[in-house]
Amino acid sequence: MFRFILPGLLWLITVVGLSLTPGNELQRTDWFVFEFDKVVHTGIYALLVHLWLTGFKRQRVNRFLRDKAFILVISLAIALGVAIEFLQGAFISGRVFDIYDIIANAVGVCVGTCGFYFLYRNYY
Rank of each mutant, 00 (worst) to 15 (best):
M1Q: 03
F2C: 03
F2H: 06
R3M: 11
R3I: 13
F4H: 15
F4K: 06
I5G: 02
L6V: 15
P7H: 10
P7S: 11
I13C: 13
I13F: 13
T14C: 12
V15F: 09
G17Q: 08
L18S: 14
S19P: 11
L20K: 09
T21P: 13
P22K: 07
P22S: 10
G23T: 09
N24K: 09
Q27D: 14
Q27R: 09
R28I: 08
T29A: 12
D30S: 15
F32W: 13
F34A: 15
E35T: 10
E35A: 14
V39F: 14
V40C: 03
V40R: 10
T42K: 00
G43A: 04
Y45F: 14
A46N: 06
V49P: 13
H50R: 05
H50C: 08
L51M: 06
W52F: 09
W52C: 04
T54R: 11
F56P: 08
F56Y: 13
K57T: 07
R58Y: 05
Q59G: 10
Q59I: 07
Q59L: 07
Q59F: 05
V61I: 09
N62H: 08
F64G: 01
R66Q: 14
D67T: 09
K68C: 08
A69V: 02
I71T: 10
I71Q: 05
V73I: 03
V73M: 00
I74T: 04
S75H: 01
L76M: 04
L76Y: 04
L76W: 02
L80E: 07
G81L: 01
A83K: 00
I84V: 05
L87N: 01
I92K: 00
S93G: 02
S93L: 01
G94K: 01
G94R: 01
V96M: 05
V96Q: 12
I102F: 07
I103S: 09
I103H: 06
A106T: 15
V109F: 09
C110A: 15
V111E: 03
Y117M: 04
F118W: 15
F118K: 08
Y120S: 08
N122S: 09
Y124P: 05
